[in-house]
């Protein structure tokens, strides 16, 4: 093997795929990494394998961010989500390249997935300041009260992305949840690390407050039980669970009456279909608050 000096080639700077917690990119506290290889077996990068403690740290960061994120004006949240789409658009080439190089997509498929992901963010960005109007309403109670119901964020949501669509699958589950004002910890398979961390970089540069989205890569069988039993998580969403995992998740969630939302996994081209962007992907992570105010002189 020749050194770069001998070949006159520049030594490439390899990216370390860490985690995204509280707006920072820490290594997993466990120090565990997994070598990722592409289809032809070539080494791509080392990816972090998040531990239970990393999940816990991410939940702490999300909890810290949750209230102020929910408290921002819907208009501002909408602009920040749109800003994330802008950032993604400006990185579309590198994101596409990552999907091709690290995830074995064809250029065409990669491009389509990036485009769909950007469009999905834009679509949900537009929901932020309409949710209350569409999901909330005044109630004509039979008495002298001004009574209204409006949706509010559930709080801290942990999401488990599926195997099939590393970028669009993640964006499709994260965007509706933060659009409703929740803070998120999203766990993707380790193999998704390159594009997940590219996406984290998009978010890190898009005015999204630290901790609103935390991205982990790890093994679901390690992280799912921890999330299910964690007492400071308000809701869990997951894609593509086995029956055993469903029982484990819903059973564990019952200890603190967590909201659980489960969906099937699908390929990028399936995710790209318009019916997978829906108001009803936002509602599982919202609570309806009804308030009564007397009207009298």
């Amino acid at each position: 093997m020749k050194t770069p000096a001998q070949t006159n080639m520049r030594l490439t700077v390899a990216k370390t795929y860490k985690l995204f917690i509280g707006g920072a990119f820490p290594r997993t506290e466990s120090g565990r990494s997994v070598a990722l290889r592409n289809r032809s077996g070539e080494f791509v990068a080392n990816a972090s394998r998040a531990s239970r403690k990393d999940l816990r740290e991410a939940v702490v960061a999300a909890r810290k961010a949750a209230e102020s994120w929910a408290g921002r004006t819907a208009y501002l949240r909408s602009q920040i989500l749109y800003r994330a789409a802008e950032m993604m658009e400006s990185r579309r080439e590198s994101l596409t390249a990552t999907l091709v190089k690290a995830h074995g997509k064809t250029a065409k498929a990669a491009e389509a997935e990036v485009s769909a992901s950007i469009d999905r963010l834009v679509w949900y960005a537009g929901w932020c300041d309409k949710l209350t109007q569409v999901l909330g309403n005044q109630n004509p109670v039979a008495g002298p009260f001004f009574n209204m119901s409006s949706p509010e964020a559930t709080g801290v949501v942990v999401l488990f992305a599926g195997e099939s669509s590393p970028l669009l699958g993640l964006v499709s589950i994260v965007a509706p949840v933060i659009c409703g004002g929740n803070a998120v910890v999203a766990c993707s398979p380790i193999a998704h690390a390159p594009i997940v961390i590219d996406f984290a970089e998009v978010l890190a540069t898009s005015d999204l407050p630290a901790g609103v989205v935390n991205l982990l890569t790890g093994n679901r069988d390690e992280l799912l039980p921890t999330a299910a039993s964690h007492r400071d998580i308000d809701a869990i969403g997951a894609v593509g669970l086995s029956m055993e995992e469903q029982v484990l998740l819903e059973g564990g969630a019952s200890a603190t009456i967590k909201r659980v939302w489960i969906d099937t996994d699908r390929t990028s081209s399936a995710w790209a279909l318009a019916d997978h962007q829906s108001l009803y992907r936002i509602t599982p992570f919202l609570e309806v608050k009804t308030s009564w105010h007397p009207m009298g002189l």
């Binding site: 109670v141 008495g143 009260f145 608050k289 009804t290 308030s291």
Partner: peptide
Amino acid sequence: GVIWGNSFNRFDATS
């Protein structure tokens, strides 16, 4: 889930 401003234990089918 239910906030009563200057009231308490009010219920209504529409609420």
